[in-house]
Design a protein around this nucleic acid. Structure first.
Length: 692
DNA sequence: ACTCATCGATTTTTT
DNA sequence: ATCGATGAGT
């Protein structure tokens, strides 16, 4: 740290960026357009605080939304200032709130080892409440009720206040569930994700001595993606910054795409009002995209009414026009994208420099089919996540019960997993016995007989207790990886999965092993084309970007047209477009399969909003079957298609070297690749294959 | 307690 | 089309 000099961390900053780094005192809002170097500003600012302002690492609180963003920031910071950076609080809102809450929980009657319930746990708990209140599950879906409760917490509206504002029978049910739900959380010594913020704010607002402690601790607070903050997060910032008043928020209102999870754009728009004496800076020089891309994105976003005008510019030249392509249907769309990717790879692009974005996850399917067939190596970002996979959640639930046996949701989850003969009726008997005796479900498992449980399940319950108790004693003496192994072994999880003898079960075992073994080894595959939703694309950049499904009803999505209005969808479009550095292609299909039927959608309104002088439009009509879906003006089939036979060695543009196993009808070669041992079916006309 | 069939919904996502 | 949840049957 001592060796970090201002000239090192300031030299490659433009004047606006420099000012954002150097204005350390007082509230500061930085409106940072796409690609304007905001992460750079954030890390340099922390470096500056440490090196020149004399702040100590633990006095800095830098907040992000995702763990990934936090990890990246920590890494970049450590590169810049070295190991002392590790003592700074660089973490997510939830992690920071959680850390505060662990210390302050006793003030609210929670114990410090409270369990954190994720959204699946929350849903299960809501369901239990609904059953207990005996409400019609058709009218009151757990999902709908939970989303109301979650929104309420994000607005810092507690059960009592919610109940006082009820204006319909539905609301009344939500209010009743909300109250019961909180009671159940409390008696399980558990908090849900929303509570982490809600309760952190609550404890700081109600206990001034607690607030004072944390306010003094954080001399400098920095917030990334400020446009995504909700009211609870905003209030947390207000409290934490009240003493030193050094809040630095970076965000781009044009990239606010999370209103559905209570993000409130007013936090950005009202910043100067909320934080007296605040200054605002704008970063509008873009270091990522060509003018064609930037002007197109600027022109689209200018159609939003609720917006502060801002105009991104760059010095990277005009570049190629943005391409708008109409295709026949989703299959032609996928084929076009795959063929274009093959061309790009031939031109020297790496697969990892190319991305395809779509509005909804379901759209990846057809694309994946075609990419697999054409041998384009890809990765899909998003979808079901590692920690949400059932087997991983089961394991985590075991660990939670071992640490906090009052955690009834986790206990119910694992009681019969793997199957050991503890069914719903057994659990229901235990639960009602527990309720009657005023004890926890875990304690009730000791009195299975008294609870009226039959003979066979009694034995199962006793066996289950033995498993948990054995793991509890293991928890005292073992390291985490060994404990996990003991849990997997004692619980019979591994044995049950092995007995299944299916590919799926093998995958689950692998997932569990992955959790125990080195986290870094997750995968380091080479040059993969990236497929993801527009929401996941935020913050990333690619040399070439394909945005598919630009049709009314798809994007903008019909649900948003009905509900939130179309401006957030337009911002999403803006986010997608501004990810592209050099090449941007926007596609729409004349028709596509939707919900089991074929629908004919108009081209997206966003396509009408593009500046014609920066755009080139292609319409692809199938001239013949063989050329169906091939890009106009370019021959998708390559000129020198290699003549191959089984046993030949080949090299693929993205997959590397492999051996031809056999040839199939329709010009398909089955190739096994050396890099990962995978077997793929490649269409010779398209796949970038050469004989070696 | 577990297996299979029918019904209904179906945007986006993090913690 | 597809997935998940619920309910009847074994």
């Amino acid at each position: 740290m001592a060796t970090t000099q201002p000239e090192t961390y300031l030299e490659d900053l433009n004047p606006a960026q420099r000012e954002a780094v150097l204005t350390t005192e007082g509230p500061l809002l930085v409106v940072a357009g796409a690609g304007s170097g905001k992460t750079r500003v954030l890390t340099r600012r922390i470096a500056h605080l440490l090196a020149a302002v004399g702040a100590k690492p633990p006095e800095i609180l830098a907040i992000t939304f995702t763990n990934k963003a936090a990890a990246e920031m920590r890494e970049r910071l450590e590169d810049l200032v070295g190991p002392p950076a590790r003592a700074a609080w660089v973490m997510t809102f939830h992690a920071a709130s959680g850390r505060i809450l662990r210390r302050e929980a006793p003030r609210l009657g929670y114990r410090t080892n409270f369990t954190i319930y994720d959204s699946a746990d929350q849903l299960r708990l809501v369901k239990r409440c609904l059953e207990e209140l005996d409400r019609d599950p058709k009218r009151f879906t757990p999902r709908g009720i939970h989303s109301q409760i979650s929104n309420a917490k994000n607005q810092l509206i507690g059960p009592a206040e919610y109940a006082s504002r009820v204006s319909s029978f539905y609301d009344q049910t939500v209010a009743d569930v909300y109250e019961l739900y909180q009671q159940k959380l409390f008696s399980s010594n558990a908090v849900d994700f929303d509570d982490m913020l809600y309760l952190a704010v609550d404890v700081l607002e109600r206990f001034p001595e607690a607030a004072e402690k944390w306010q003094s601790a954080f001399r400098y607070i920095l917030v990334d993606e400020y446009q995504d903050t909700n009211h609870a997060q905003y209030r947390l910032l207000r409290i934490l910054s009240a003493k030193h008043e050094n809040v630095f928020c970076v965000g781009d209102p044009d990239q606010s795409v999370y209103s559905f999870r209570s993000a409130d754009i007013r936090n950005v728009l009202d910043f100067e009002k909320d934080f007296p004496g605040a200054k605002t800076l704008t970063l509008d020089q873009n270091y990522r995209s060509t003018n064609a891309i930037l002007e197109s994105a600027n022109t689209v976003i200018r159609h939003n009414r609720e917006r502060k005008d801002k105009n991104l510019w760059s010095e990277l030249g005009d570049g190629e026009p943005v391409r708008v392509v109409e295709v026949e249907d989703e299959h032609a769309e996928a084929r076009y994208v795959a063929a274009e990717i093959a061309l790009l790879v031939e031109q020297g692009y790496s697969g990892s420099e190319v991305a395809v974005f779509y509005r909804t996850n379901a759209q990846s399917r057809v694309l994946e089919d075609v990419l697999v067939r054409q041998g384009v190596a890809y990765q899909v970002i998003g979808g079901p996540r590692f920690y949400e996979r059932a087997e991983v959640k089961d394991l985590v639930a075991y660990l939670q019960v071992i640490d906090n046996p009052y955690d009834a949701v986790s206990l119910v989850r694992i009681a019969n997993r793997p199957r050991r003969g503890i069914g719903d009726s057994t659990l229901a008997r235990l639960q009602s016995y527990a309720d009657g005796q005023g004890i926890s479900l875990w304690e009730a498992t000791e009195f299975a007989e008294e609870a009226g449980v039959g003979a066979a399940p009694q034995k199962a319950v006793r066996a289950f207790r033995t498993i948990i108790e054995s793991c509890m004693s293991g928890a005292l003496e073992l390291e985490v990886p060994e404990l996990i192994e003991r849990v997997l072994e004692q619980s019979g999880t591994i044995a049950a999965l092995e007995a299944e003898r299916t590919i799926e079960a093998d995958g689950r075992i692998e997932n569990l092993q992955e959790l125990v073994s080195d986290q870094d080894a997750i995968r380091g595959e080479g040059s993969l084309v990236t497929l993801m939703t527009l929401h996941n694309a935020k913050g990333l950049e690619f040399r070439a970007v394909f945005l598919i499904g630009l049709e009314e009803g798809i994007f903008p999505h019909s649900r948003s047209i009905e509900e939130h209005g179309v401006e957030e969808e337009r911002r999403l479009c803006y986010v997608g477009m501004t990810r592209a550095m050099e090449k941007l292609t926007l596609l729409h299909a004349s028709s596509r399969m939707l919900y089991g039927g074929r629908s004919y959608n108009l081209a997206s309104r966003f396509l009408d909003e593009l500046p014609e002088q920066w755009v080139e439009r292609d319409q692809l009509r199938p001239a013949s079957w063989s050329n169906y879906g091939a890009p106009k003006g370019s021959v998708a089939t390559r000129e020198n298609v290699p003549t191959l036979s089984a046993g030949d060695s080949v090299r693929h543009g993205t997959l590397g070297e492999g051996v031809v196993l056999r040839l199939e009808a329709g010009g398909v070669a089955v190739v096994r690749f050396a890099s990962d041992g995978s077997e793929r079916r490649l269409m010779l006309d398209y796949a970038p294959l050469e004989k070696i």
